[in-house]
């Protein structure tokens, strides 16, 4: 079977249309309140709660994003189980037990895909109704398995913890029994996946501090991408927040979460600046005048 699968070759049927971060960032529209000067300001909340006027549609969109994210996480974990030979962790080998963990994760993700597809149906969403952003799988394309652990198990699955916590809360407040229950169970799996990534990253790089530093640096790059221009963040302007408690359970330190939070703020400010520049370019009225 073929190894090292590029993102362009992901198999999808005709219902799905794929996009990527570069394409998404070309969109000059924004729902961000551009008049706010600080990412931590108390502007009108954009948090995805049932109080939003567009709550059910916004939840449908995020649920679809979760479903395609689960497909990509399944593909990522499956590739990592297959792409590298079993060994002691050096020279692009991975311990056999790490492969077993990736196989277990692939099994979990397959279950999550089914759950998410059924939840989408329950919420009135057709599979493929929204564009699929392939940025998640791109984090699983590194030639170094340890970078994949950092990108997928820590950054991507960390993102999943944040999103599932928000959706679980949404289901709880709205009184949607299925959404709240399913997100809670999937959240438990995601905490485990992050923990597996953290543990293996530490074990495999125990005697290779340079490789560990490179992996953590890669994770920061991916974490910033997964902020989606500030859609994730602790600002009220972000749709969903960092789930600090569950990240702690997954093995993130407070300092690590603080760094991610700061990067989320940076991503939000960078997105605002990009929007300002775009508006200048097209001659639109400034929004923060």
């Amino acid at each position: 079977m073929r190894q090292f699968f590029p993102v362009e070759d992901l198999a999808r049927d005709e219902r799905f249309v794929q996009t990527n971060m570069a394409e998404r960032m070309k969109d000059g529209r924004t729902a961000i309140d551009m008049k706010e000067s600080s990412a931590k300001s108390r502007g009108a909340s954009k948090r995805l709660t049932p109080e939003r006027h567009d709550a059910s549609d916004a939840a449908r969109g995020l649920m679809h994003g979760i479903m395609v994210g689960e497909i990509q996480a399944l593909e990522g974990a499956g590739r990592t189980a297959h792409d590298f030979a079993a060994g002691d962790g050096s020279n692009d080998t991975v311990p056999f037990e790490l492969k077993l963990d990736m196989a277990r994760q692939a099994w979990d993700e397959a279950r999550h895909v089914e759950i998410s597809a059924k939840l989408s149906d329950w919420m009135g969403t057709e599979l493929g109704e929204f564009a699929e952003n392939t940025v998640l799988f791109e984090a699983a394309c590194s030639d170094d398995p340890i970078l994949r652990l950092a990108g997928v198990n820590r950054a991507l699955e960390g993102l999943a913890i944040d999103v599932f916590t928000q959706m679980k809360e949404f289901g709880d407040i709205a009184g949607d029994p299925f959404l709240e229950f399913c997100e809670d169970w999937m959240l438990a799996d995601e905490v485990t996946h992050v923990k597996m990534g953290s543990d293996w990253l530490r074990k495999v790089t125990a005697n290779d501090p340079d490789r560990r530093a490179k992996a953590l640096e890669f994770q920061q790059v991916v974490d910033k991408l997964f902020s989606f221009g500030g859609a994730r963040g602790e600002s009220a302007e972000s749709s969903f927040s960092l789930a600090r408690r569950f990240r702690e359970l997954a093995g993130f330190t407070d300092d690590e979460v603080d760094v991610i939070s700061e990067m989320d703020n940076e991503a939000l400010e960078e997105r605002k600046e990009a929007i300002r520049k775009y508006r200048e370019k097209v001659g639109a009225e400034p929004v923060d005048a």
């Binding site: 939840a59 449908r60 329950w122 919420m123 009135g124 969403t125």
Partner: peptide
Amino acid sequence: VNEQRWRYNHRN
């Protein structure tokens, strides 16, 4: 129109 979408909106 997707009826289930509006049923979900109504239930919310």
